[in-house]
């Protein structure tokens, strides 16, 4: 369910970007999915395939890059990689801000050289 609405949001963004840049034809989209984004890469692929069927984006390939949670310790200021249950490796404090790892981003598009308006 969730992946389907994410898939639609992704398509909407790609469509708008392509239109704004004069009718680009995307072949490949780079996605960055944080481990804490609650989005499963395989379900998202599946949802995007379903959502693009019989559309100009049917052939769109996905390059999914996943990324780990990055945190900043509130006690000692250390930066570390670790999930929401991890403690600071330097001072063992478990109170930390999340600097990244919940991303859900379209990083780039690879487009055909020749543009066309759809």
């Amino acid at each position: 369910m969730h992946e389907l609405s994410i898939a639609n949001a992704i398509l909407k963004t790609i469509e708008a970007e392509c239109r704004a840049r004069g009718g680009l034809r995307p072949r490949r989209a780079g996605l960055r999915i944080g481990e804490l984004s609650s989005v499963n890469a395989e379900s998202l692929r599946f949802a995007l395939t379903a959502a693009t069927r019989d559309t100009p984006f049917a052939e769109l390939e996905l390059a999914i890059e996943s990324c780990s949670p990055r945190r900043l310790c509130r006690a000692c200021g250390a930066h570390y990689v670790g999930g929401l249950l991890s403690a600071c490796p330097r001072c063992a404090c478990s109170s930390a801000d999340l600097l990244g790892g919940d991303e859900l981003e379209i990083t780039y598009l690879e487009v055909e050289d020749e543009t066309c308006r759809t």
């Binding site: 949001a9 992704i10 909407k12 970007e17 379209i106 780039y108 487009v111 055909e112 050289d113």
Partner: peptide, 15 residues
């Protein structure tokens, strides 16, 4: 093939 950098949050519209 040409690469276009986007760095767009998927939920930026929601945000």
């Amino acid at each position: 093939m040409k690469r276009v950098e986007l760095e767009q949050k998927v939920l930026s519209e929601n945000d």
